[in-house]
Write a protein that binds this DNA or RNA. Structure first.
Lengths: 239, 239
DNA sequence: CGGTCTCTTGATCTTGTTCAACAAGTGTGG
DNA sequence: CCACACTTGTTGAACAAGATCAAGAGACCG
């Protein structure tokens, strides 16, 4: 998470004037996919962003229980792959929904590009990528039971605080229960009940305006019900 | 949406070496807020990003029904305001959860920064900002009833297709019902039921692998139940 | 034409919301 | 210093949206 961030300088390549911002323009396509083909896979080294020229692409993440979580559908003109900017590797899978043509935009990791004092690439891109990933994580979190949502939230806060050098055992919560509810999309009452439940399980201890984490592993593994039946991952036919 | 995008070049200002990436370092703070103070408001002209130095900030959007949707909590070291990059104005509200110090990073809209052929700022930043907003919208969407989620999804797809010059009346859906479900976080059966319901209301007509939109206004206004009681917006005491 | 998917519809169950009441904490003023 | 108001957090009971289980209807394809 706090790993040395790589920076990117991106150059269009092939016949893609201005990142293919228009629709037409014929040739020099970088990738052609059939329905079900993978454009990239979570974990792949990210050398590029992709602009959809024709067809359609979906991006998704696999929940740890095997359930598929779709993050977006991309139609022609839209750009896929922003999640990779921060770490230089994709975080989601991307798959063609039908025959699809894409334009590849090479992104070479490059140290601090514009050396004119402007710090556009320096940390900004990293922050941007983190924001995208944070939102993606939030969407994934949204797909869990109330108990799991709160458990993850607490771990997340603990992690944030650990990064600041504070103890990750005692998590201070500057926000009200209602705020947590509006963040996790739970009624205030449910948030309260889940705090009580986690404390009852012996996983946390409520302590002033924060909580003490007693069993982080249990919190992380909390998975009472998948909340949504895991269908078979994806497109059945096709490679 | 498709408005001429402004580009940004960002320079640190004040005592913020490397975007305040560390924690300490004393002086020259740009903003100091008390609990409940607004850092910026949705619609404000976005002249800057902010790095949290101490304290805590929440960002939120107001649903059209007045309910508050929290998009994130930001602790020291984190950057607030990325959602504004694309349009030059903030899309969310940001409020201090307690006494908070922030470091301001001025972002002057600047045309196509690095003129060396690299098109980093050219469309990339815009795309990045759009991705952030897309994810934020997705999170907001997540907070609606099944009917509303599907209705919005269809309008979204219609909008995308309209931008491609295709008809926005007939929406082709290249993905399976199950895919829509995994995107909207609904069981396949529920997606199917909602299609049937919307068709029964006369708002859409199912047509091959897509739908014809008969009453876009009704779809947009679809709001059977708020799905979550709207609490009073936010922090009660404090300015 | 049979097999395999996808979509649709019905019945039942679970989770989390909603309504309601109460406890605990904080601050103010008499 | 304590009573009172006000806010935040906790707990109980009833309800509802949507998931799950189950089964059947089309569609597509070899």
């Amino acid at each position: 998470m706090n790993a040395p961030h790589s920076e990117f300088l991106c150059h269009a390549r092939g016949n893609c004037p201005r990142l293919c911002s228009g629709q037409s323009a014929p040739a020099a396509l970088a990738r052609e996919l059939e329905r079900g083909d993978l454009l990239f896979r979570s974990g792949d080294n990210a050398g590029a962003l992709f602009v959809v020229r024709s067809g359609a692409v979906k991006t998704c993440r696999l929940g740890e229980d095997g359930s598929e979580q779709i993050l977006g559908f991309y139609l022609p003109g839209e750009i896929v792959g922003f999640d990779a900017i921060t770490q230089g590797r994709y975080v989601a899978d991307a798959m063609a929904l039908k025959a699809t043509q894409l334009c590849r935009i090479a992104c070479q990791p490059a140290a601090s590009a514009s050396g004119d004092g402007s710090l556009l690439p320096e940390r900004l891109m990293t922050g941007f990528g983190q924001e995208v990933q944070r939102l993606q994580n939030l969407l994934v979190l949204e797909r869990c039971s109330a108990e799991q949502r709160l458990a993850r939230f607490l771990l997340q806060m603990a992690d944030k605080q650990a990064r600041l050098g504070r103890s990750s055992r005692y998590v201070s919560l500057p926000m009200a229960r209602g705020d947590i509810g509006r963040f996790l999309h739970l009624a205030t009452e449910t948030v309260s009940r889940m705090f009580t439940r986690l404390a009852g399980l012996g996983w946390i201890r409520i302590e002033g305006s924060g909580v003490e984490i007693l069993d982080a592993a249990a919190l992380a593994g909390s998975r009472p019900q998948p909340a949504l039946r895991r269908d078979r991952p994806a497109l059945p036919q096709a490679a």
